[in-house]
Simulated assay, not measured.
Amino acid sequence: MANITRRRVFIAAGVAGVAAIAAVAGQTWLGGFEELATAPVYAPDGVAIRGTDPVAYFTEGRAVPGTPEHALEWNGATWHFASAGNRAAFADDPEAYAPQYGGFCAWAVAEKGKLYSTQPDNWAIVDDKLYLNYNDDIEARWQKDIPGFIEAGDDRWPEILAAKS
């Protein structure tokens, strides 16, 4: 049942993405789900990491759904948390918990210089920083040279931000 619901969400997101593209001429296509980057944080429907609690990656070692009850606005997006404590930890030091490259696919930023969508279950913490990737296949590619991709991503990220300004 969860897969059916997930597919419906992706289909709805795809339809919304096509409508947004038609409405916003001149925007740049993203890879992956063809979603538009309108902010420095990947936030479909305005919610970062598809509603996953960023602090939980560090404290629980897994992707944990957050709730609107424990929401916080930061950097142009709404962030959801599983608890008030996680929300407070993020509020105290958001850069420590927010994913690198605005939550866009770490591999795509590094390898392609493009902004691809991500899935909350495709993640890694490297040197106390959270990185997200597009899907299992892309995550496997990224894992073949994590230090090299991080170096390339760190070099390309400022260029990507400047192009979005």
Rank of each mutant, 00 (worst) to 15 (best):
N3Q: 14
R8A: 10
R8E: 08
R8D: 05
I11K: 07
A13V: 02
G14R: 05
V15L: 12
V15E: 07
A16V: 08
A16Y: 03
A19Q: 12
I21V: 09
V24A: 14
Q27T: 11
W29Q: 08
W29R: 10
G32R: 04
E35H: 06
E35S: 10
A37M: 12
T38D: 14
P40A: 06
V41D: 03
V41R: 11
Y42V: 04
A48G: 07
R50C: 04
R50V: 12
R50I: 12
G51V: 13
V55W: 13
F58Y: 09
T59S: 15
E60K: 15
E60I: 11
E60F: 11
G61H: 05
R62L: 09
V64K: 13
V64D: 11
T67G: 09
P68W: 10
E73D: 07
W74E: 04
N75K: 05
N75W: 01
T78F: 00
T78H: 03
H80L: 08
A82P: 02
A84V: 00
N86E: 09
A88H: 13
A88P: 10
A91N: 05
D92R: 04
P94Q: 06
Y97C: 11
A98R: 01
Q100M: 05
G103H: 02
W107F: 14
V109S: 00
K112L: 06
G113D: 03
Y116G: 02
S117I: 04
S117C: 13
T118C: 02
T118Y: 02
T118A: 00
D121N: 07
D121G: 03
W123H: 04
D128W: 13
K129A: 15
L132K: 07
N133Q: 05
N135W: 09
I138R: 01
I138W: 02
A140N: 15
A140C: 12
R141Q: 10
K144S: 10
I146K: 15
P147I: 12
A152C: 02
R156Y: 07
P158Q: 04
I160N: 00
L161Q: 14
L161M: 13
A163L: 05
S165T: 12
